[in-house]
Amino acid sequence: MNWYKLHTLGNKHKEFEWTYSSLDCLKIKRVFKNNPLVITQFSDLEIEKILNYIFINKELPLANSVHKLSNGTEIDGIGSFIYNNISRDTTDAQASSQFVALFTKLKILGYNQKPIGMRFWLLNIDWKNKILEYMAKQPPYKNEKSNTL
């Protein structure tokens, strides 16, 4: 499996790895201090739901604060949509940071270029072809032959 490396869009520019298979899903791999490896997965259907939500709302904030998601005070946005409609897990909702970084890199999403108060909108609905084209042109960060992920 080929993994690609990117970083988030905010001030901290946290590195993450990602891979995609149309037979499987989008996988986002992150490392946390208290948990050495976390992999969040988004199926094609879940990606479609997220992008459709962004399209319907025209422009949305990231909205993925762990504290606000946990106590129900987070505003409507991409992270809160993932939390409320895909996975009631703050770790998965926080993967919205990596999701938007990848999708802006591929010009599927546009954003206001602000490190704080980021807002996102849909540029291209053909997300699957954009991902596959990128993977075909870009050398992977690392290639793992195992199917353990």
Rank of each mutant, 00 (worst) to 15 (best):
M1H: 12
M1Q: 06
Y4A: 05
K5P: 03
K5S: 15
L6N: 14
L6V: 06
T8I: 13
L9E: 05
N11F: 14
H13Y: 07
K14H: 10
E15Q: 10
T19M: 13
Y20W: 12
S21A: 08
S22N: 14
L23P: 01
L26T: 03
I28L: 14
I28H: 01
R30E: 08
R30F: 00
V31Q: 10
K33Q: 14
K33P: 04
P36D: 12
L37Y: 12
L37D: 08
T40M: 03
Q41I: 11
Q41G: 03
D44R: 11
D44Q: 15
D44H: 13
L45A: 14
I47F: 03
I50H: 00
L51M: 04
F55A: 11
I56H: 02
I56M: 10
E59C: 13
E59H: 05
E59R: 10
L60S: 03
P61S: 05
P61Y: 04
S65G: 08
H67V: 12
K68G: 04
K68H: 13
K68C: 04
L69I: 02
S70T: 14
S70Y: 02
N71F: 05
N71V: 08
G72A: 13
E74W: 00
I75F: 04
I75G: 00
D76L: 04
G77T: 04
I78Y: 00
I78N: 00
S80I: 00
F81M: 01
I82H: 00
N84V: 00
N84K: 15
N85K: 12
S87Q: 06
S87Y: 03
A93K: 03
A93Y: 02
A95K: 02
A95D: 03
S96E: 10
S96P: 07
S97M: 15
S97R: 15
S97F: 10
Q98F: 05
F99W: 09
A101L: 11
L102D: 03
T104Q: 10
T104N: 06
T104K: 09
K107Q: 14
I108R: 06
I108Y: 06
L109F: 11
G110A: 08
N112W: 07
N112F: 12
Q113P: 01
Q113N: 12
K114L: 14
I116Q: 14
G117P: 02
G117F: 03
R119V: 11
R119Y: 14
F120S: 01
W121T: 05
W121K: 03
W121M: 05
L122E: 07
L123G: 07
D126V: 10
N129G: 03
I131H: 05
Y134I: 06
M135Q: 15
M135R: 10
P140Q: 07
P140A: 13
Y141G: 07
K142Q: 14
N143Y: 15
E144G: 07
K145A: 13
S146Q: 09
S146A: 12
S146G: 06
N147A: 09
T148D: 11
T148S: 12
